[in-house]
Write a protein that binds this DNA or RNA. Structure first.
Length: 189
DNA sequence: GAGGCGATTGGCT
DNA sequence: GCCAATCGCCTCG
């Protein structure tokens, strides 16, 4: 997939149904301090969704998810890894699960230690490590530095299936993938 | 306050 | 395929 950055994503892009946003994000370009690539895998987590961190209401950790749309929600997973969400309607958001790494491959490889390009950003934890994302970015607006989010060029084909690694809401088909991408966290079954 | 589990990953069997 | 790493949050007492 070539990278030809289009116009920036505005806040109203995110102020929509979370499944619409999750699908629409496939093929867009995500850069953090100029490092990144094309989003190829996302998952939607709606308000009232039993699989969501927000299911039981606001906590200190998920506070950003109840803020305005178009901001980042960064949280620690399993006490070790960072994961990145884009906030949509209050209490709902899209987990960024994988990008095709395009800009800054050297720095990504350095941050992660030796690793195949194919796996640099294949998974929410790996992606955050490669892009240098941590709690400092929690609650930050996506339309300002260090984020740079832009439409890609041309249309893409998107497939949907069940989300990964959860124990509740396992049937809900809110995982969105770029068809044919080699950079997914796991193949679509 | 203790115990268990999670939107994960890497290493070992 | 199994398991440890390790922090925030939930449940129960």
């Amino acid at each position: 997939m070539s990278i030809k950055p289009g116009p920036p994503l505005q806040t109203d892009f995110f102020a929509r149904d979370v499944t619409v946003v999750g699908r629409a994000l496939i093929g867009t370009i995500l850069l953090v301090e100029g490092i990144g690539g094309v989003i190829v895998e996302t998952e939607a987590y709606d308000a009232g969704d039993p699989a969501s961190h927000c299911f039981r209401g606001p906590t200190q950790r998920n506070a950003s998810m109840f803020g305005p749309p178009g901001h980042a929600y960064v949280y620690r997973s399993h006490g070790i890894h960072w994961c990145l969400d884009f906030v949509c309607w209050p209490g709902s958001g899209v987990l960024i699960r994988a990008i095709e790494p395009i800009i800054g491959l050297d720095l990504m490889t350095k941050r992660r230690g030796a690793s195949e390009v194919r796996r640099l950003c294949a998974g929410p934890g790996r992606l955050c490590q490669s892009l240098g994302i941590d709690s400092r970015l929690d609650g930050k607006p996506l339309h300002q530095t260090p984020f740079d989010l832009r439409f890609g060029s041309g249309s893409v084909s998107v497939s949907a299936g069940p989300r990964i690694g959860i124990t509740r809401g396992v049937e809900t088909p809110w995982r969105f993938c770029l068809v044919g991408s080699r950079f997914l966290s796991r193949p679509r079954i």
